[in-house]
Computed example of a mutant assay.
Amino acid sequence: MKFISRILVLLGCWFFTGEVSAQEVAILPYKVIANKMIVEMRLNGKLIPMMFDTGGQSSISVSLKESLGVSVNRSREVTDANSNKQQLEIVNLNQVETADGKAVFNNFPFLVFDFEMFSCLGVQGVIGSDLFQNNTIEINDQTKEIRVRAGGMASLAGDRRTIPFAAATGGMPVFSLNMGKYDEAKVLFDTGSDSFLFLKRDEYLKLEQQDALHKIREGEGGGSIGATGRGGMGKCILVEVPEMTVGQASFMNFRASVGNPPETLFGYKSLQYGKVTIDYVNKLFRFEPFKPGKIAVDLKKTWDLEMAVSGNQMVIATVWDKLKGQVEVGDVVTHINGKEIKPMSVCESITKGLPVLKENDQVILMVKTKQGTKNITINKS
Rank of each mutant, 00 (worst) to 15 (best):
A167V: 00
P262Q: 11
N106Y: 12
H335E: 13
E97W: 02
W14P: 05
L365T: 00
M1F: 08
Q272N: 14
F165A: 09
L68N: 04
V315Y: 01
I127D: 05
Q142F: 06
G311L: 05
D361G: 04
N140S: 15
V309G: 01
T169Y: 07
K339Q: 11
M233H: 07
G221D: 06
A166S: 15
G69E: 03
I216D: 00
G122W: 08
L265A: 12
S250Q: 12
G170C: 09
I225H: 03
L8S: 13
K322H: 10
T302W: 04
G274V: 11
N44R: 13
L68Y: 05
T98F: 07
I60M: 10
V25C: 09
G45W: 04
K36F: 02
Y30N: 07
S59F: 03
N379H: 03
E145R: 15
K85P: 04
V327M: 09
T17C: 15
F16Q: 07
Q124V: 08
G151R: 12
F165G: 10
S61C: 07
W303L: 02
K342N: 10
G330V: 10
N375Y: 15
V25K: 14
L64R: 00
I350F: 13
K186M: 11
M233N: 06
S59T: 13
V309A: 08
N282D: 14
I225K: 01
A168R: 15
G55I: 01
I216A: 00
D100S: 07
V91Y: 02
A296P: 02
D190S: 03
T245V: 14
Q248K: 11
F287V: 06
Q87C: 08
A157I: 15
G55D: 05
G267D: 10
I38K: 12
K200I: 10
R161D: 06
I163N: 05
D211V: 12
L271E: 01
K283R: 14
D80W: 14
K186F: 00
Q326K: 13
K206Y: 04
L207N: 04
R74G: 12
K283M: 08
K269Y: 02
D130S: 00
N82Y: 05
S71W: 06
F165N: 09
V315C: 02
L64M: 02
G45R: 07
I127Y: 07
